[in-house]
Design a protein around this nucleic acid. Structure first.
Length: 575
DNA sequence: GAACACAGCG
DNA sequence: ACGCTGTGTTCT
C-alpha cells in the first residue's frame, strides 16, 4: 500500500495532478470528535492523507474544488459528509459501501469490519479508530491505519457495484442521475439510496427547531401533574401504578376485575384491557396517569436532547427491513400529535408540511393490480366511503360516519392480511361492535369484490406453504424476504412507501437547488415531509414540494394517482 | 444485560 | 396484525 502524508501547498499540487483524471475517488476521514483532522483520498493509485490541521483553509478550498466534480466512495458516508458539509465541501455524487451492503442484505451487521470480512475475506483491525487524532504529530501506525480503510473501500466498491447491478429491476423505471452516470450504477433502489445518504446527512445537520419557552411551560405543568397523581395513587392503594405486575395483581385480586392474560401469562393491563373497565374510577385514574406520563416522558426526551433551541435527531437511513427510516435522540417520528405544536420555525421562518394521502392503500391497489380499486382512485372517489357502499350494499351518499369508519378499518386491515377475529377486535377500537361472524361476512364480501386482493393473498399463502418464504420486490425494486403471511403482504407495501418518500425528497432537493431556494428538510415521518424556510419563499416552496412529491408518485405508481396535502404553518401541526 | 410491557407515531 | 424507539420494571 502506497500512501503519502500531505501537509503543505506543494503536496496539494501533487495530489491535484494525480487525482484530477479520476472520476471516482475513495474517501475516509478521521476526526477529533468535533473537528476534521484527516481526509484520506485515493483513486486507482496511491492514497493521499490530507492533514487539515496543517493545511488549514487552503486544504478546505482544495477539497471543495476537487470533490465538487468527483464521485466519492466511502463507508458510512453520512458520518464524513456531516463534517465536510460544515466546510461547504460537497461531492458531486456519493456511493456508500455500508448502504450497498445493507441493500444486498447478505449480513446482519454492516460495519466496515464485517463487510470487509464477508466480501473480501479480509481481517480489519479497527483498534486505532478511537486513538488520539488531535495530537500535533500523528504516528506512522495512525497514518497506515487511515490509509488502509480507503484501500479496503476501494477493493469493496467493484464487488458491491457488480452485485447491485445484477439485481433484477423494473424495466420502465430507468433513473438517469449523477449517481448512475458517475458510478455506472443501474439498480434504481441503489441509485436512490446512494443519493439519499446526502439528504440524511443534511437532515441531521439541520435539526428541528423547538419553542423552548413553550416546552418548559408544558414540561413544568406535566411534571407537577404526574408527580401528584402517582403520589396520590400510591398513598391510597399502596401500589405503584407504573408497575404492570403490581397493577395486574391489584386490579384482579383486590378489585376483582376480569382482565385478559398477556402472552407470557401475566395479567394484561394495557390500554385495550383497561378500557373495558373505563367506568371504574380507579381504572380511570390509572389511564389518566398513563396518558400524562407518556407526554412527560416525551417532553423529557426532547429536553435532554436540546442544543440551543433545536434538537438534532439521529436518523437511520435504513431503519426497518422495509427500507423505512428510524429516528432517535430524540425520536421525532413518534411525537404525540398534540405535542407537535412545541416545534416552531425560527423567527422569520415557516414550516412547509406535506403528506401523501392514503398512500399505502394506493400502493396496495397498484401493487396487486386491483382494477376496481385503481379505477376508484382514478375517479377521485373517497375510497373509504366507496368500500363501505360495496360492503354494506348501500349508496355512497347514505353511508354514515360510523360505517365509513368501519370501511376504513377494513381497508387498512387488508394490508396486514387481517383475519375475521382481528377485524372484529379492530372494529372495537373504533368503538364499533362487530361480532366475529359479521366480520367474517364483511371480509368475504370485500374479497369477492376486490378480487385482486383475494388472488394476491392466495398466491402468497401458496408460496409460503410450498417454500416457507415469500420473496419479492417493491415497486422501485427493493428486495425483501418474508417468512409469515402478515410480513409477506406488508413488506412490499410499506417498502414501496419508503421508496416513494426518499425519491420525493431527492426530487425536491434537485428543484430547490435549481431555483436557489433556501429551504431545509427538518423531519421525515414515513409519509410526511417537513421543511423550514424563510417566510418570503414559503409559498414557492409549497408549490415545489407538492410538485416533487407528485412527480415521485408518478414515477413509482403508473396507474394510481398520488395525492398530496401541503400546508404552511408556524408550528408543526395540522390545520 | 436481556426480556417484557406499555405507548407514541406511520 | 405490520414497521419502529424510549421508558420503566422485572428476571436471570
Amino acid at each position: 500500500m502506497r500512501f503519502e502524508y500531505i501537509t503543505s501547498p506543494e503536496g496539494l499540487l501533487k495530489v491535484k495532478e494525480k487525482l484530477s483524471p479520476e472520476a471516482v475517488l475513495f474517501l475516509d476521514t478521521e476526526t477529533t470528535g468535533d473537528r476534521l483532522r484527516l481526509v484520506q483520498l485515493g483513486g486507482q493509485g496511491e492514497i493521499f492523507l490530507l492533514d487539515l490541521f496543517e493545511l488549514g483553509e487552503r486544504g478546505v478550498l482544495f477539497l471543495k474544488e476537487l470533490l465538487s466534480q468527483k464521485g466519492v466512495v466511502g463507508h458510512n458516508l453520512k458520518f464524513d459528509l456531516k463534517y465536510l458539509y460544515r466546510y461547504h465541501i460537497e461531492p458531486y455524487a456519493v456511493f456508500d459501501t455500508m448502504v450497498a451492503s445493507q441493500l444486498l442484505a447478505e449480513l446482519d451487521r454492516h460495519s466496515l469490519q464485517s463487510v470487509a470480512m464477508h466480501y473480501l475475506g479480509q481481517v480489519l483491525d479497527k483498534s486505532l479508530q478511537l486513538s488520539d487524532w488531535g495530537s500535533r504529530v500523528l504516528t506512522k501506525a495512525q497514518l497506515e491505519y487511515a490509509a488502509l480503510d480507503v484501500v479496503v473501500v476501494r477493493d469493496l466498491f467493484p464487488i458491491l457495484l457488480e452485485k447491485l447491478n445484477q439485481c433484477p429491476v423494473r424495466e420502465e423505471i430507468l433513473l438517469k442521475t449523477r449517481t448512475s452516470r458517475v458510478f455506472g450504477l443501474q439498480n434504481p433502489v441503489a441509485i436512490v439510496e446512494m443519493a439519499f445518504v446526502q439528504e440524511v446527512a443534511k437532515l441531521e445537520l439541520n435539526g428541528l427547531p423547538v419553542d423552548t419557552q413553550e416546552l418548559e411551560s408544558v414540561f413544568r405543568e406535566y411534571s407537577r401533574k404526574v408527580q401528584r397523581m402517582i403520589m396520590d395513587f400510591i398513598s391510597t392503594h399502596r401500589v405503584d401504578p407504573m408497575s404492570p405486575k403490581q397493577l395486574g395483581e391489584f386490579l384482579t385480586r383486590r378489585l376483582g376485575l376480569d382482565l385478559p392474560k398477556t402472552e407470557k401469562g401475566n395479567v394484561s393491563t394495557d390500554d385495550k384491557a383497561l378500557s373495558e373497565h373505563a367506568h371504574h374510577p380507579v381504572v380511570r385514574h390509572i389511564l389518566e396517569i398513563r396518558a400524562s406520563k407518556k407526554i412527560l416522558d416525551k417532553l423529557e426526551e426532547i429536553r435532554e436532547n436540546l442544543r440551543g433551541n433545536r434538537v438534532y435527531p439521529e436518523f437511520k437511513q435504513i431503519g426497518a427491513v422495509t427500507g423505512r427510516m428510524a429516528s432517535s435522540n430524540p425520536n421525532v417520528q413518534n411525537i404525540p400529535k398534540d405535542l407537535r405544536r412545541i416545534f416552531k420555525a425560527e423567527e422569520g421562518n415557516l414550516f412547509v408540511i406535506a403528506d401523501f394521502s392514503q398512500i399505502e392503500l394506493r400502493i396496495a391497489a397498484e401493487y396487486v393490480g386491483e382494477i376496481r380499486m385503481i379505477r376508484a382512485f382514478q375517479e377521485g372517489r373517497d375510497l373509504h366511503r366507496y368500500t363501505a357502499s360495496i360492503l354494506l350494499g348501500k349508496r355512497e351518499e347514505d353511508i354514515t360516519k360510523e360505517e365509513r369508519q368501519l370501511a376504513k378499518a377494513v381497508n387498512f386491515g387488508l394490508i396486514y392480511g387481517i383475519s375475521a377475529k382481528g377485524l372484529s377486535q379492530y372494529a372495537a377500537t373504533y368503538g364499533i361492535d362487530l361480532p366475529v361472524e359479521e366480520a367474517q361476512a364483511i371480509r368475504e364480501r370485500f374479497f369477492s369484490y376486490f378480487e385482486g386482493f383475494r388472488d394476491w393473498h392466495n398466491r402468497v399463502k401458496e408460496e409460503l406453504k410450498k417454500t416457507g418464504k415469500s420473496s419479492g420486490h417493491t415497486l422501485l425494486g427493493r428486495s425483501y424476504v418474508a417468512h409469515t403471511f402478515p410480513d409477506a403482504v406488508n413488506y412490499p407495501i410499506q417498502g414501496t412507501g419508503a421508496d416513494l418518500l426518499k425519491l420525493a425528497v431527492l426530487m425536491l432537493d434537485a428543484e430547490l437547488r435549481k431555483e436557489g431556494i433556501p429551504a431545509k428538510v427538518v423531519n421525515l415521518v414515513h409519509d410526511e415531509i417537513v421543511l423550514e424556510c424563510p417566510q418570503e419563499v414559503a409559498q414557492e416552496v409549497q408549490t415545489l414540494l407538492e410538485r416533487a412529491m407528485k412527480r415521485a408518485g408518478s414515477i413509482i405508481l403508473k396507474r394510481v394517482p398520488v395525492e398530496v396535502e401541503v400546508t404552511v404553518k408556524e408550528r408543526w401541526e395540522k390545520e
